[in-house]
């Protein structure tokens, strides 16, 4: 199972990677929305963690495009709660769930486990 981590913060990318590395056979990382779209096209990850506020292409646009490319992808939005309307828009566009920054490793693991369970039941 493949994971793609999308966040413009290296610290966050590392934290997510450290927490989830053991659960996935491959982990790829993107630091903006455009990279995420390109990587999703090439790698077809099963699970994506997506920040919303990023340079160039933001998370909402990236979600919309990734869902168009690979509708079966499970996207977990991980973002600060500055704008709930944007987060809801991301969910409406196809994201699976939302995790608020700052988050604990346990919260992240728990959210990802729910997604993995669904993937395994396919």
């Amino acid at each position: 199972m493949k994971l793609m981590i999308v966040d413009d913060s290296l610290i966050i990318r590392n934290k997510i990677n450290r927490t989830l590395l053991s659960r996935f056979s491959k982990v790829c990382r993107a630091e903006n929305g455009q990279q995420a779209i390109d990587m999703a096209t090439a790698e077809r990850p099963n699970v994506v963690t997506m920040d919303l506020t990023m340079p160039e292409v933001d998370g909402v646009e990236a979600i919309e495009k990734i869902m168009a490319i690979a509708p079966e992808t499970h996207i977990l939005v991980i973002s600060a709660l500055a704008d709930k309307a944007t987060a809801i828009k991301a969910l409406t566009l196809g994201a699976y769930g939302f995790l608020c920054k700052p988050f604990t490793e346990r919260e992240l693991s728990s959210a990802i486990e729910r997604i993995i369970d669904i993937e395994l039941c396919k």
Binding site: L81, A85, L91, Y96
Partner: peptide, 12 residues
């Protein structure tokens, strides 16, 4: 497609 357990944080 939504996991309702994972959206409570965005409840406006």
């Amino acid at each position: 497609h939504i996991d309702t357990a994972l959206i409570e944080d965005v409840n406006p």
